[in-house]
Amino acid sequence: MEKWVVKAIQVGSIQLDRSAMTHYRGKGEQLVVPIWCAGATDGKHKVLVDTGIRDLKEYQKAEPGVRQTSGQDTVSAVKRIMGWNPEDIDIVINTHLHCDHSGSNGKFRNSKIYVQKKEWEAAFEPLVPEAPFYDTLCFDKQAVNFFQWQFLDGDTEILPGLQVITTPGHTRGHQSVLFHTEEGVVCVSGDICNVAENVNENLEPNIVVLVPEVYESLKRIRQAAHYILPGHEPAIQDGSEKFVPVL
């Protein structure tokens, strides 16, 4: 089986109350957390998991604490960490279509873009708590050529050593990405795990639309992965290949 190298790519940060990510634990404690994408390669393929923010001011309407430095726009950050230009990337995988995870999809015009079909459908008809985080300009036909989309229906092996598993709860069609690396299986979790506490201490993340499914999804990650890159974990360094152990 192919072995992958995975690196964390920071594309912004958010100041928020810790309890927003940990089911009320740590209420009143202010944190600045990163917004993570991930770059991965097996030496042949170039893969990007999630694509960050489309428009900072637009996203601030939903998340007032969001910030982005000049070097953290997705194209610049991918170039800085991975050395890749947008046209180099073979595959983009969206864990879900919230605007801090799909915002720069339109920059990657040569890529196949993998998403769960259920997530695509939900994004155009969002529920009340998730509506501010779905920005159709990230994923509609003006942003992405429809023929780039690769719609998935459940767990899928995309390439040897690269799989997606369904992890609904944060959104209806959420998926997480598993990479087979030299150190073990790394899960790029998206926001079913905002921070490692979610998976390791069985705590709900921020924004939940399916409560029982959250706990089943966290269990799936614990069963599959040795390490995790959560969507907003502050303990990980930009550009790092070292992630948080899954307990």
Rank of each mutant, 00 (worst) to 15 (best):
1 M>A: 10
4 W>C: 06
6 V>D: 03
10 Q>V: 04
12 G>Y: 06
14 I>S: 06
18 R>T: 07
19 S>H: 12
20 A>I: 13
20 A>E: 07
21 M>H: 05
21 M>L: 15
22 T>V: 07
23 H>T: 14
25 R>S: 02
28 G>T: 14
29 E>R: 11
32 V>P: 03
33 V>N: 09
34 P>K: 13
35 I>A: 01
35 I>W: 11
36 W>Y: 07
36 W>T: 11
37 C>W: 03
38 A>G: 04
38 A>C: 14
38 A>K: 09
39 G>H: 13
44 K>D: 10
45 H>L: 08
46 K>L: 03
47 V>N: 02
50 D>P: 04
52 G>H: 10
55 D>N: 14
55 D>G: 12
55 D>L: 09
55 D>W: 08
56 L>R: 12
57 K>L: 02
57 K>V: 13
57 K>D: 13
57 K>Q: 15
59 Y>I: 11
59 Y>R: 04
62 A>K: 12
67 R>N: 08
71 G>L: 08
72 Q>D: 02
74 T>Y: 06
80 R>K: 09
83 G>S: 05
83 G>E: 08
85 N>G: 05
87 E>M: 09
87 E>L: 04
88 D>E: 15
90 D>Y: 11
91 I>P: 05
91 I>T: 07
94 N>G: 01
100 D>K: 10
105 N>L: 09
106 G>M: 00
106 G>D: 00
108 F>Q: 00
109 R>W: 00
116 Q>F: 01
117 K>Y: 07
118 K>C: 01
118 K>R: 13
119 E>A: 09
119 E>G: 05
128 V>F: 07
129 P>C: 13
129 P>L: 10
131 A>W: 04
135 D>K: 07
137 L>D: 03
141 K>Y: 05
141 K>V: 04
150 Q>W: 10
152 L>M: 15
155 D>T: 08
156 T>W: 08
157 E>H: 03
157 E>C: 12
161 G>Q: 11
166 T>P: 04
172 R>L: 10
176 S>V: 09
177 V>Y: 13
178 L>T: 06
180 H>C: 02
182 E>C: 05
184 G>D: 04
190 G>M: 04
196 A>L: 06
196 A>F: 12
199 V>P: 10
201 E>A: 15
202 N>A: 09
203 L>C: 08
203 L>E: 12
204 E>I: 05
205 P>V: 07
208 V>K: 05
211 V>D: 10
216 E>W: 04
216 E>R: 14
222 R>G: 03
223 Q>S: 06
231 G>N: 11
232 H>A: 07
232 H>E: 01
233 E>Q: 14
241 E>Q: 09
242 K>C: 02
243 F>S: 03
244 V>S: 07
246 V>Q: 04
247 L>R: 15
